Simulated assay, not measured.
Amino acid sequence: MSKFHLNIQELVQGEFELKKVNLAFVFQVNCPGCFIYGIPLTNNLYNLFQEKVGFIGVATAFEDFEYNNEKSLNLLLHNGEMVGETKKYYHSNYNLSKYPETLNFPVAFDSMTTSEAFINSDKIELMCKNIPNFKAFSETEKQLLIQKVKAHYTQIPLIAETFTLNQLRGTPSFVVFDDNYTVLGHYFGHQNQDVLKSKFEDLLG
């Protein structure tokens, strides 16, 4: 089974306690859907399971870097201030200038690196090893794939490591993992709370 790679800067809020079952909620500050669905869902799950499940919110950035950054995250956590498309959505639909909920769970910002540093590290190989049947590839096929992946990430100015290493599809994303960082479940987009609630209950026995 694949491993969850949690590469973050220092926590901006709270303390993350690794438990037998954990949830990483990966979001972008400039992502209205993360605020409409993701944060309320994670808050509800945190209120229900915080004694038995470890929670961490990871603010990431794969686009709109002028909004998706640690400064915007701090504005949200400390003042409820929103930015970009999220701000426009809540202002035009609800006439709100500040986000009406607080984030009750620990939150960190994703570890950001340059494309040059990323492709010259061992992280490309780490990503490729998670590809199904990679071990069965010939050495030539492995090297061709690694070069192809490197060429792709050369074109991206900033790399968010948690988002990229785990090959997440977008935000909001929810990753359930154990105390060995083995992935137990992965969910993308708008989720029904009962799905994750049932997952936790099954894993907790």
Rank of each mutant, 00 (worst) to 15 (best):
E139Y: 08
Q9A: 15
C34R: 11
V26N: 00
K87L: 13
A61G: 11
K71S: 15
K52Q: 14
L23G: 04
S2P: 08
K88P: 01
G14A: 07
L45H: 12
Y37A: 04
E70W: 04
S72A: 15
A24L: 04
N93G: 01
N79F: 15
C31V: 03
L73I: 06
N43C: 10
N69T: 12
Y46P: 06
L96G: 03
A117V: 14
A59K: 00
P40N: 03
N30H: 04
H5W: 09
K3L: 08
M82F: 11
N93H: 14
Q13M: 05
K71Y: 09
F35H: 12
F27D: 00
G14P: 04
F109M: 04
N104Q: 10
Q28I: 03
T102H: 08
Q13G: 05
K142A: 02
L45P: 03
S115A: 13
I39S: 07
L145Q: 08
N7Y: 15
T102R: 13
F118C: 09
N30A: 12
I8C: 11
H78D: 14
T42I: 10
N74V: 12
D110G: 06
F137C: 04
E81N: 09
F16N: 04
I39F: 14
L144R: 02
T113L: 15
L96H: 06
L48I: 10
I8Y: 01
V26Y: 01
L144Q: 06
E10K: 06
Q50K: 09
E139F: 10
K52Y: 14
H5C: 09
E17V: 15
N120M: 08
L96C: 03
S138P: 02
F55S: 02
N68M: 12
P32L: 01
S2G: 09
S115K: 03
H5M: 14
P132R: 13
V107T: 04
K19T: 05
L11Y: 00
E10G: 03
F134I: 02
P40V: 05
S2D: 14
E141Y: 10
C128S: 11
F62A: 06
L103F: 14
N104I: 13
E51F: 07
D110I: 08
K3D: 05
T140W: 11
N30P: 01
V58C: 01
N120W: 10
L126H: 09
D64R: 14
Q50T: 09
V12C: 02
T102V: 08
F4E: 06
N104M: 12
C31P: 00
V29M: 08
K135G: 13
T86I: 10
N47P: 00
F118E: 05
N22F: 14
A108Y: 00
V21C: 06
Q9F: 00
L6T: 03
Q28E: 14
D122S: 12
G84P: 03
P132A: 06
K52G: 14
Y46T: 04
G54K: 09
E10P: 01
